[in-house]
Amino acid sequence: MISWRRVTEDDFPLLARWLAEPHVARWWNHETTAEAVARDFGPSARGAEPSQDWLASVDGVPCALVQRSFFADYPEYLDELGAFLDVPDGTLSLDYLIGERDLVGQGLGPRIIASAVAKAWADEPSATGIMIPVSTANQRSWRALEKAGLARIAEVELTPDNPVDDRAHVVYYLARPAGA
C-alpha cells in the first residue's frame, strides 16, 4: 500500500541521500549538501511556495519523492513549454524519483505515479490535467508514465535538468477524468 505525507525538514537528510544515489543524480542533477537541500526543499516544506513535495511510502517505508505544482505558478517554465504546445489552465506538473536503489526496476514507478495522479485529483479540484515533460533519454521514466496511463502528446526542445543531456523531451498528458 502506498501512503503519502508532505516532506518536512526532518526528511532533508533522507532526500540528500536519495539525491546522491547515482540512479537519481543522473536525472535530478541536484546539489546534495545540507544547505542546498534546505534551500531547495525548505520553502515547500514550510508552505512558503506553491510547489508541494510529497514523500511516498510503501508499507510504511519511505521510498519515493513526488513534487507537484501548477504550471501557472511557475510562469518561466510555463512559457518555455507553452512555446511548443497548449498548456490548459489548471494543468499540474509532477516530478518524481524512487530514492531507494533496490526498488528501481521492480514496477514501483508506475504505481507511485498512478497513486500520485489519484492523489492530485483528490487534493486539487481545480486541476484539469497533468502534463509531464521528460528527457527523451530517460526511457525508464517515460515508460513508467505510459504504464501509469499518461499518453505521449508531443516532442519538444526544453532546457534539460542535467546539462549532459540535449534539449529533446517527450511530453505526457492525462486529462482529469469525469467524476475525479
Rank of each mutant, 00 (worst) to 15 (best):
S3Y: 02
S3N: 14
R6Y: 13
R6T: 13
E9L: 08
D11K: 03
P13L: 12
R17G: 12
A20S: 15
H23T: 10
W27R: 08
W27C: 11
T32Y: 12
T33G: 10
A38V: 09
F41M: 02
F41N: 04
R46S: 07
G47A: 14
E49Q: 14
S51N: 07
D53I: 07
A56T: 02
G60H: 00
F71A: 10
F71W: 15
Y77W: 08
D79S: 14
E80K: 00
A83N: 01
D86R: 13
D86C: 04
V87N: 03
D89I: 01
L92H: 01
L92Y: 00
L94K: 06
D95Y: 04
Y96E: 12
Y96Q: 13
I98E: 03
Q106M: 01
Q106H: 10
G109H: 07
G109E: 11
P110R: 13
A120P: 08
E124N: 06
S126W: 01
S126H: 02
G129W: 05
I130P: 02
P133Y: 04
P133I: 04
S135L: 06
Q139E: 15
S141A: 15
R143D: 01
K147M: 05
I153Y: 00
I153G: 00
A154Q: 11
E155R: 15
P160K: 12
P160N: 10
P163G: 09
R167M: 01
H169P: 09
V170A: 11
V170P: 00
A178Q: 14
